[in-house]
Design a protein around this nucleic acid. Sequence first.
DNA 1: CTGGGGCTTCCAGTGGGGGGAAGGTCAAGA
DNA 2: TCTTGACCTTCCCCCCACTGGAAGCCCCAG
Lengths: 130, 130
Amino acid sequence: MNIKGAAERSDLPAKTIRYYEEIGLIRPLRDGNGYRAFRDSDIHKLTFLGRARALGFTIEDCRVLLSLYEDKSRASADVKALAKRHLGQINGKIAALESMRDTLTDLYDACNGDHRPDCPILANLALWGG
Amino acid sequence: MNIKGAAERSDLPAKTIRYYEEIGLIRPLRDGNGYRAFRDSDIHKLTFLGRARALGFTIEDCRVLLSLYEDKSRASADVKALAKRHLGQINGKIAALESMRDTLTDLYDACNGDHRPDCPILANLALWGG
DNA sequence: CTGGGGCTTCCAGTGGGGGGAAGGTCAAGA
DNA sequence: TCTTGACCTTCCCCCCACTGGAAGCCCCAG
């Protein structure tokens, strides 16, 4: 299967697939004409990667997850530890965003949003040394 | 004031300050020796930028916010609209992260995390065509 | 044999800086 | 006066995870 079919079946852009090969996440075969030849196992890995990326795992995490997946003697504790670390990072990002949202919502609600220049949002941003 | 003092007073790395000058957010003067000479107004803008960035505004949003801040005939509605758009983006990111977190938490809880290889996390990532 | 769609590689850019080299400048101390 | 060390400058590459586009090869239908 050529890259377009692989892209459709894995629901990943062809560019991304080439990139994943470049960084060694997949190693598709090559036809005589130099075209990539994707096996089912390649498509399988690609969908795996797509799902892991959709859960927010970094590429390097994905690399580890893929190797754990292929290692039939893995310990599920290793996978769970990776997931825990990632959950912690997700929660950190959510907390940061919620903090931004709360502050910004307060300022937003305090701004009357009319034609006049007075604006608590700008006033807060301009706080001198606070 | 040299860049180090500006960095301390604005609580921004010197590298960041140079970058902000490079992209035209600030325009500090120069001493005869080529050193940047920061006025109070420059420091003021830098702290403004630091706060706006801390609220998650992009650099381009910051540029607009700064110009609105300096435009004494601005309408607060313009600021409010920008804040609204940004709040929408923040909420979108939070929703995406919460979705990841929920999915991953379910998988995490279902994984017993022992020495055995069976792992619902990997099994989910490996779902074929689901 | 021509056209168009597929495929290849390579280069550049994204956002928001960070790291570090190479070299100029300045002030304090010996 | 000389040296040392802290500071400053520009310059270029690196990060992540792609994305866009150019230049050029391959293959099949008409």
